[in-house]
Design a protein around this nucleic acid. Structure first.
Lengths: 253, 253
DNA sequence: GTCTATAGGCGGATAGAC
DNA sequence: GTCTATCCGCCTATAGAC
């Protein structure tokens, strides 16, 4: 039965519990902590861990998550086997199950790192900026993100297209909060006559859509042009065109 | 092994062979014919079929494809079971296998109907039109397509994001041909000074991206606004905003 | 912590009667 | 053409030794 979706929840970047965790869930370097679900925790050696051990553990978890991101983004949750993830991360399948209780826990782990990264460019959109410069820079950052994190962009897309069962709560809280704040910024710019009166939400959708398109629909673009974001010149070309279109529109001035 | 992708090819709308087909592959009403692959055809009763029987067969195949589209678009190829498709189409699993040799053949069948529909709005973009009106109408048609065929839009997205292994050949031929023709039209408009000088390919990408976004990222939009394309007022609002943005841009005139 | 072996179930596909 | 019964491989997850 695949209709039954994961029952695991996604506690990304809610106040970090700061306590020592159950299981080897010691993420380093910006990675999120794992949900400490009630029942059925991992074997868990209870004695204190040396910093060194913690680092080793975190590295291994990160390697697994990296491998998983790459595979999930190409084949989806159900199109990826634990065996593949393990092989790609250079660990044994059994060993992977020592670090993650289930395939879906790996999937959740990958998703939680995702949204955070995905939101970063938007966070940088500030009131103080000149609107036109702000938008221009945002487009540039977003396309650059599509270039440097194509797999993250694609997996995010896959997840949302399929209904975002896991991400939903986060979209309604963290994302909404951020978007609400930024739409106010934009509305302010419009009220000041610095931008044409476009609905801020639809503007944000258009920005997301046009910039992510280069990562998400890369195969289509490659089929049509034989080029893609791996080519620096194409990155600049895409950026220029999107900026031009969004800022000045099609109608000749 | 899920890494090994389907080996079936996608012969959509290449000159219809017009001959009677092997197997019950008698599609009616705009549906495409099935690939007549060399080996291992279906049981196939060889005697002539009455129009009535042909219709019954076509109807059943269509019902299966419809059910499959709906499920594939939500759960992906690997996230959907044949059992689910059969149940949704109100046939038995065994019976489904009478009409389609494998799950992947169903998948291919769904995809072949897809691209054709997906291309229709672009076909309607004509030289004779006034550029601004032409673009405006195209945006409207595309968003309306996102509304009336959300599942098709999403499955197309899913397939392309995952590398378009099956669609690739079609993208490089049928799609490319059409896009090449239309970029010429657009280039002509620009040369005539009727549109601002934007690269026609990037313009098309922006048009696709902004309009499909409303179908593909519907869950995200719903999480943010609590609205979607099912609401007619929202369709109009989205259309207006995208038209405005693409045609006139953000910078105040 | 890491391994070998294996349980256990799901799901795609076929056999063969009717 | 449609059904019942069933096969069998693949894949998640665990047991238990080291």
């Amino acid at each position: 039965m695949t209709a039954a979706r994961p029952t695991v929840s996604l506690p990304l970047r809610t106040a970090r519990p700061a306590a020592s965790r159950a299981a080897p869930a010691a993420d380093a370097a910006g990675a999120r902590a794992e949900p400490s679900r009630g029942e059925a925790s991992r074997p868990e050696p209870l004695r204190a861990k040396t910093p060194h051990r913690l680092r080793r553990i975190a590295e291994k978890r990160t390697a697994i998550l990296d491998a998983a991101l790459s595979l999930f983004s190409r084949n989806g949750l159900h199109g990826t086997t634990v065996e593949q993830i393990a092989r790609t991360a250079a660990v044994s399948k059994t060993n992977l199950f020592y670090y993650f209780a289930s395939k879906e826990e790996v999937y959740v782990g990958v998703l939680s790192r995702l949204l955070d990264q995905w939101l970063d460019p938007l966070r940088a959109l500030e009131v103080e900026t000149d609107p036109v410069e702000g938008i221009r820079a945002y487009i540039s950052r977003k396309i650059r993100f599509s270039r440097t994190h194509p797999e993250a962009s694609r997996l995010f897309c896959l997840e949302v297209v399929q209904g975002a069962p896991l991400l939903r709560p986060e979209l309604e809280t963290a994302l909404k909060q951020l978007v609400d704040a930024k739409t106010e910024v934009i509305a302010g710019w419009i009220a000041a006559g610095k931008l044409a009166p476009v609905d801020p939400h639809h503007l944000i959708f258009a920005l997301w859509a046009t910039t992510q398109h280069y990562a998400d629909f890369a195969p289509q673009i490659d089929a049509l042009l034989g080029r893609g974001l791996d080519e620096e010149a194409f990155v600049e070309e895409a950026t220029r065109n999107v900026q031009r279109l969004i800022l000045d529109g099609l109608r000749p001035r």
